[in-house]
Computed example of a mutant assay.
Amino acid sequence: MTQINKSASVAILIVVIVVSLIYLKSIIVPLILAAIFWLIVVEVRTMISKLISLKDAKMPVWLQNLFASIMIFSILFVVVKLLSLSIQNLSESMSHYDGNLQKMEDKINAVFDINITKSLNKMVGNTNFTSLLRTVLSSVTDLFGNAFTILLYVVFLLLEESGFGHKIRAMYPESNDQESVIKLLERVSKTVSSYLTLKTFVSVITGVLSYFVLLFVGIDAPFFWAAIIFLLNYIPTIGSLIATLFPSAFIVIQTGEPSVGLLVLIAVGAIQVVIGNFVEPKMMGNSLNVSGLVVLIALAFWGTLWGVIGMILSVPITVLMIIVFAEFESTRKIAILLSEDGNIGKPQIRNLEGKE
């Protein structure tokens, strides 16, 4: 009976957590994004402190934070500005796309002697490309809708950072407990920030190379599509596939020439294959230690809960779960199940559960 009650309590807790994640999305997602930006600021701050060193004095943390924040948000401002211009250009060109789509449809009907519109309508119903593109553009602009909230969270995280140590000491009076918790937090911070830094670097390389390919073929708003490729590159497994198909399909609709779409598909696809199979593994290695099946399940789960943002955050959240679960005996088996090789190291803070 005790085991049944325990299982029922766990099931209820899981349901409560999932429902909370769904209904508190507008609060939790900006907070997670702010935490990610904070980790990036810390990473950049560390690099700045190494590059800019005073003779015998250490640069103040607040000055490091200021330099790192100005650098990051300046880059973000430029990117958002360029994206806004690209989206505006796409919006102004929308009226031409449906006409090109009609011409391409007529060519296909003439060559294969079929009515492609009638066939497609049976499968997917009536679809207007212009309205579909507007939906995509609206989804992209929504990603920047919470920018002020995220910025506010980042500022307060930076302000609260100096008091973290004092709060940990107050929560865990024993020095052994303090050391264990600090090691856990440092491990989480280092692993997640390293992943984000390397993934961002790889995504930038992929986006820049794709931009030059798209610029060469003359696609409308190449920066917009390069930014989409950069963003989708954070989504494991299917992100690179979607990032290759999007501009390829769009250039066909823009020009009415399938051969141009095939060229983009091959060129951008080759970039994704080389970066994904050679450059990224070389840089990141197997440091994440996450099962491939777990990545797919996490992708589906967080994507269902939070959409595109959930897909992007699926790997960092899973890595964090493995690290935290590995530190406690009661959840250690879950961490082993989520890992790739079962090697998750020795727990550091079992004593917090009262176990020596």
Rank of each mutant, 00 (worst) to 15 (best):
M1T: 09
L13N: 04
P30Y: 10
L31Y: 06
I36L: 12
L39I: 02
I40C: 03
M59R: 04
W62M: 01
N65T: 02
I72A: 02
L76Q: 00
V79Q: 03
V80C: 08
S86Y: 05
I87C: 09
S95W: 11
I108E: 09
I108T: 00
N109H: 07
I114P: 00
I116M: 14
S119I: 14
K122Y: 08
K122C: 04
G125C: 09
R134T: 10
V136E: 06
S139C: 03
L158Q: 05
L158R: 01
G163H: 12
Q178D: 05
L184E: 03
L184N: 04
V188R: 04
L196G: 09
L198F: 06
V204I: 14
V204Y: 08
Y211F: 15
D220N: 15
P222G: 11
A226D: 05
A227Q: 00
F230V: 01
I238H: 10
A249H: 00
Q254R: 07
S259R: 00
G261F: 09
Q272K: 09
N277L: 10
M284Y: 00
V294T: 14
L305K: 05
M311R: 03
V324M: 08
A335R: 01
S339Y: 10
E340W: 07
G342H: 08
K346W: 05
P347F: 14
E353M: 15
G354D: 11
